[in-house]
Amino acid sequence: MEQLNLSEAEWRQRLTPAQYHVLREAGTERAFSGHYDGNKADGVYRCAGCQLDLFDSDDKYDSGSGWPSFTKPVEPDRISEHRDTAHGMIRTEVRCARCDGHQGHVFPDGPPPIGLRYCINSVALDFRGREQTGED
């Protein structure tokens, strides 16, 4: 996959301050504050930094965590995983594979059969309804 490498000035120009904080500085939005946590529309969630399709609404579920949660990415190569030891915890950070934008974290407490919970910041995503994508 071709990488999107922009300067910090270019990222600041492209993103809102909230998007920049999450995607480029690995920030986190407050629980239950994001506009996609309760979204039940049919479609695809894309990286807000580069528009790469990351998650499908078919794999979204209500985890009760306050962030959009998914059981898997649309394709395994769309995300990269990194060890995160910030804040005195050991977690697995999830980033967009194209632009390296921080999305959130993946935890091993999701529903069967996969058992994973991709806990993603709404501000790191853009949503396109199925009617906008042209998919059935």
Rank of each mutant, 00 (worst) to 15 (best):
Q3S: 10
Q3K: 14
L4C: 10
L6R: 03
A9N: 09
E10M: 07
E10V: 05
E10D: 15
W11K: 08
W11C: 13
R12Q: 15
Q13N: 11
R14F: 04
T16M: 05
T16E: 10
P17K: 02
Q19T: 07
Q19H: 13
E25Q: 14
G27E: 11
T28Y: 02
E29M: 04
E29T: 08
A31H: 04
A31P: 14
F32W: 13
F32C: 13
F32A: 15
G34N: 04
G34A: 03
H35G: 04
Y36H: 01
G38N: 12
G38E: 06
N39I: 05
D42L: 02
V44S: 13
R46Y: 14
C47G: 04
A48R: 06
G49D: 12
G49S: 14
Q51R: 15
L52C: 11
F55I: 11
S57E: 12
D58Q: 14
D58M: 02
D59C: 11
Y61M: 10
D62F: 03
S63K: 03
S63E: 00
S65E: 00
G66L: 06
W67M: 04
F70S: 09
K72T: 06
P73W: 05
V74P: 12
P76N: 12
P76R: 10
D77Q: 06
I79L: 11
H82F: 07
R83M: 07
D84S: 11
A86R: 12
M89P: 07
M89K: 12
I90Y: 01
C96F: 08
A97F: 08
D100E: 06
D100S: 10
H102M: 00
Q103T: 08
H105M: 09
V106W: 07
F107P: 03
F107T: 00
P108M: 03
G110H: 00
P111D: 01
P112C: 04
P112G: 13
P113Y: 08
P113D: 09
G115W: 10
G115E: 03
L116E: 08
Y118I: 09
C119F: 00
N121I: 04
N121T: 05
A124E: 08
A124R: 02
A124D: 03
D126Y: 07
F127A: 04
F127H: 14
R128K: 15
R128I: 05
G129R: 15
G129T: 11
E131S: 13
Q132A: 15
T133Y: 01
T133E: 11
G134C: 11
E135M: 12
D136T: 15
D136L: 13
